[in-house]
Amino acid sequence: MAKITYREALNQALSEEIQRDKNVILMGEEVAQFKGSYKVSEGMLENFGSDRIIDTPISEAAFSGLAVGAAMMGMRPVVEFMFWSFCYVAFDQIFNNAASVRYMSGGLINVPIVFRGPANGGTNVGATHSHTPENFAANTPGLKVICPATPADAKGMLKSAIRDNDPVCVMENTILYNMQDEVPEDEDFLIPLGKANILKSGNDMTIIAHGKSVHTSLDVAQTLEEKHGVSVEVLDLRSIRPLDVNAIIKSVKKTNRVLLVEENKPFCGVDAQISFIIQEQAFDYLDAPIKRISAIDSPQAYSKALENVQIPAHDRILAKAMELI
């Protein structure tokens, strides 16, 4: 199996699906001639032409809404946001139109669309470019939300998202784009939405994470194991909505201790919901209160010195984990 980057995995997923289905197009700012702001679509304009790989003006409300309208007509557009932060100027198109048209039409109209792009802090670009909207996207019935954390997941889940008949928000991470790992070359390599992945098995504690915090959690698990003799299970949610509740509960029942880690802000964040589900469905199995680490609750800071503190890092997670033991 070839080792490729997360970026190349996305490119493969997009290319294969565009090849496979003439209704699939990729649209967004700088996706064609510029090859993508993060070079995700490198080579695609040359391979598929300007009918399939479409440069848009900086005009998120128009091209997001256009894509929703085209999806209502049966196309399967993939909309790239240069940053998910920019979806805020297209909010109505995503959160009203894409999410609600099926419901409001009594099921007469489908919206098979993918909105994708990076949704992360940690790159010193300040508050406006560092939003992590997976919590409020998942708060909107009608939308599906996934946060692939590995190259293989990036490919397999994006392909599933494109083939999905509902709107799917794919939240990537610029810091993961260069991450390399083995990715199957099979054109029908699909990872279903809503299936969590246990990346490391353990017995004493479960760390539940999504996105880049999965990798920080794996590092912490290693430290806990090597330095403190604690056996840690790391569960990568992969998908926020649908959510693999069974996998969460199963792991909690096994380890009896839970630490939730996310780069999302805390208030009404993804882990607030997960925490509730655990106490509701596995309260009697808990040997300690659920612990939680999220981004520090201020607008995202620019300075490296501040942002490094803001985003859950190894030592902060480790300290919280130690409280559980």
């Binding site: 409300a61 809404g65 309208g69 085209a70």
Partner: peptide
């Protein structure tokens, strides 16, 4: 208004 644009785009 952008939805109408998308319907025209699909046509």
């Amino acid at each position: 208004t952008p939805l109408g644009l998308g319907i025209a785009y699909a046509l």
